[in-house]
Design a protein around this nucleic acid. Structure first.
Lengths: 139, 139
DNA sequence: AATTTTCGATTACAGTTGTAAACTATGTTT
DNA sequence: AAACATAGTTTACAACTGTAATCGAAAATT
């Protein structure tokens, strides 16, 4: 599994489109991104090339124009990115940070119910308190 | 309120220490970080200087050695960082991403209970489904 | 086949980040 | 006061990012 930590914000935009479409030509990516950003075509091509170098995308060169395929799943990318971000946080603050996310995200009723049962399950074995480890040697 | 988007992983490590201590000398920061990382003192000093340039820290120069004070609260930083990361995600995937975080984080019973009630409240007005916006012009 | 259009590759260039050594100024000990 | 130690400042340098222009190759049109 690739290291996704180094997927930048701009690269995420490109990947989202290709994940959603399943596969895509540069033209398809450019069409979408010219609507949602101010980027020039050349910029978007550069991003695609960098994503190939990082092995997040692979071009099927048997077809012309090339068709780009994701080499990482969206779930893996999301998993790694959000957890990587959370590694920055004081572990004592993670609960509240999740609360912040819940408040600021649109979530479907179904997902909310799933989260509630997950939490109910987790509560059973949850610690009474979580200690700050910001000054500890535990990296 | 400052833009925290550009606080790097390394800088986060420094800030966490100073937030936890309330204020700190470079020496205090160095002591902690030499235990948790492989960084040399000079590296840590560089980070502190960059944090000053970005206005995340301010040195009280009336004392020697300088005492560094945070210019952003930890909550603001967390709020901005996690939401900024979530902006990268397909809105349809955010619920699951939160589930992933819940599974991978230690959370206290109290926080879990808070999250549950937050979710129960949110469920009342939650949409049945959230649509993917990855191809939309809504940036 | 010649021309035009499209698409991919190469090059560019400034700013940021990780990582740190070296230099300087200030404070402390002899 | 001199010497030593500590802390702050300057400089360094490669890799990565944002942002794109330009050049060359392939495909489509005339």
């Amino acid at each position: 599994m690739k290291e996704i930590e180094n997927m930048t914000k701009a690269e995420w935009q490109v990947m989202r489109i290709i994940w959603t479409l399943g596969e895509a030509t540069s033209k398809q990516v450019i069409e979408v991104l010219e609507r949602k950003t101010e980027w020039k075509q050349a910029t978007i091509k550069t991003l695609i090339i960098r994503l190939q170098k990082k092995n997040f995308l692979k071009a099927d060169e048997s077809k012309r124009p090339y068709v780009y395929h994701p080499q990482v799943t969206e779930s893996d990318a999301i998993h790694q990115s959000v957890n990587n971000m959370f590694d920055n946080l004081c572990c004592m603050k993670k609960g509240k940070a999740i609360g912040d996310l819940i408040q600021n995200s649109d979530i479907s009723k179904g997902d909310i119910r799933d989260l509630i049962s997950l939490l109910q399950e987790k509560e059973k074995t949850a610690p009474e308190t979580v200690k700050c480890d910001c000054l500890e040697a535990t990296a």
